[in-house]
């Protein structure tokens, strides 16, 4: 444990990197995922097609490949992202596909009568989605969304392979420095991840209970 204390500065910086990477990518994934879900249920066929294409591409590509494309592929066409920005985009764009599908399942779970009633009072498709369907859809998908975001926090470890000094990148670094401290280093890193994921899970649970609606 003395070893961890000695390297606390490193650990703390890496923790903050993982945290900000997760927050930014999570925000991107939530916004983009909601738009994707809306597009996939929209009455406009090209929009549906585009969103379906996006989801299938990102859902079926390994995250490492997405990172590789962002960080080594894009510079080939003179589009250079920083390592951190590249990591945020890779993780966010990838996770958006899963968020979108989770939200779409929630939209499908809202009874058709709710959308019919909102159209019947003259709301446009967009208004009916915003005012009536999505607020109810979000409530039902909070638990699966929690899963998606917890998986995303852990997936952020792939950024270690692409020059971002986040938590997992400390493993080889600290173990190389002192192989005898392997257990301590593993423990330190795992606990640091849990400091993000456990409060996230707790928050999700609280939110779920707070917005539960009677049907």
């Amino acid at each position: 444990m003395q070893f961890l204390a000695d390297n606390f500065g490193l650990l703390w910086d890496a923790f903050l990197t993982t945290l900000s990477l997760s927050l930014l990518a999570g925000l991107l994934a939530l916004v983009l995922g909601t738009l994707l879900a809306a597009a996939r249920v929209s009455p406009i066929p090209p929009l549906r097609g585009l969103a379906t294409f996006y989801v299938e591409v990102f859902r079926n590509t390994p995250l490492t490949v997405v990172f590789f494309f962002m960080i080594f592929g894009l510079p080939q066409i003179d589009f250079i992202l920083g390592f951190f920005t590249g990591a945020v985009l890779s993780l966010g764009l990838y996770t958006a596909a899963f968020v979108g599908e989770a939200i779409r399942s929630g939209i499908n779970a809202v009874s058709a009568g709710q959308a019919e009633a909102s159209r019947a009072i003259g709301l446009t498709f967009g208004q009916s989605l915003r005012e009536v369907v999505l607020p109810q859809a979000f409530r039902t998908v909070i638990p699966p969304l929690g899963n998606v975001f917890i998986a995303m926090v852990k997936n952020s470890s792939i950024a270690a392979g692409f020059a971002t000094s986040e938590l997992s990148s400390l493993l080889p670094r600290l173990v190389n420095a002192d192989a005898g401290q392997l257990t301590a280093v593993l423990l330190g890193v795992v606990i640091a991840y849990m400091l993000i994921t456990l409060p996230l899970a707790f928050g999700v649970h609280r939110l779920e209970r707070r917005v539960a609606i009677l049907r």
């Binding site: 019947a120 003259g122 709301l123 009536v132």
Partner: peptide, 20 residues
């Protein structure tokens, strides 16, 4: 269509009040 629907009131068998 949305504008026209706003002039036509509709009452459903299953009420369809906005649950939230």
């Amino acid at each position: 269509l949305a504008r026209l629907r706003s002039d036509v009131g509709m009452v459903f068998q299953s009420f369809n009040l906005f649950a939230h």
